[in-house]
Design a protein around this nucleic acid. Sequence first.
DNA 1: TTAAAACCCTGTAGCTACTCCAGGGTCAAT
DNA 2: ATTGACCCTGGAGTAGCTACAGGGTTTTAA
Lengths: 143, 143
Amino acid sequence: MRIGQLSQATGIGIETIRYYEKVGLLPDPARLPNGYRDYGPGHLDRLAFIRQCRSLDISIADIARLLDFRHGSPTDCNAINQLVDEHLAQIRTQIVSMRALESQLIELRKRCSKGKRTPDCGILNELTTSARGKMAIKRFPSH
Amino acid sequence: MRIGQLSQATGIGIETIRYYEKVGLLPDPARLPNGYRDYGPGHLDRLAFIRQCRSLDISIADIARLLDFRHGSPTDCNAINQLVDEHLAQIRTQIVSMRALESQLIELRKRCSKGKRTPDCGILNELTTSARGKMAIKRFPSH
DNA sequence: TTAAAACCCTGTAGCTACTCCAGGGTCAAT
DNA sequence: ATTGACCCTGGAGTAGCTACAGGGTTTTAA
Ligand SMILES: [Zn+2]
Ligand SMILES: [Zn+2]
Ligand SMILES: [Zn+2]
Ligand SMILES: [Zn+2]
């Protein structure tokens, strides 16, 4: 199977497949006499696994760890459970901070209505004044 | 005011301040005879505004636009309202997809309990089978 | 037969918003 | 005279791709 076919089969772009090879996620494939990459079913399987992990936003480094567990000698799988737990915690943290961001932006948006001119824009003014409010207490004399 | 003082006053790192100068967010400051950067109150103000925007996750490019509105000749501010609306929409989209991600990871996590060995790990197996399930229908004969 | 289209190759640069470092120069105090 | 705290420039690194540039190969159609 050539790279274009692998790309079609997995829905992953050709450049991305070559990138996964470069960073060590996908083992180097055999080569045809003309130098083209020649993939087998193992590559297809592995690449599908990678795509599934990426769709869950698992990092390249963590996918490498998962692939090691998958293809290495059997061990205790607690590390896998822990990896998922950590990612879940990370996602939840991000959701919390994005919701905080959302409400801040909602408040900001309320400051302005239609048809104002920039010097009277409530949004600009709010950004300016809250920026000033957050500045360090310390003052710097000019001498 | 030298760069270290500006850094202290705004809470922005020195390297970051130089970066903002390089990308055009902060105007080039005057220089002291020894070549050190010499900032005025205008820079402090502008930098505080920038930090405020960044804390709302507004991109460098959009901050540049906001600064243009802030320091340019007065115009209609609808573009500003729209900018905030777009960011709000973006944030909300991201929250939605992160929640979807969260529930997927929760489901995945349920697949495995303590003390299993990697070949029996429900998480690994789930990742593998759902990866296979999502593969393109098209098959590639080996001939 | 030949020319275009479609495929493949390597290597490099670009994206975001910083952050860090190497290898210097400058200035105050000891 | 030397230490330490500053400051400078320029370049590399981060994550995960994506998009070339500048070539070679294979298939298909005129
Ligand atoms: Zn992780
Ligand atoms: Zn407005
Ligand atoms: Zn925007
Ligand atoms: Zn498990």
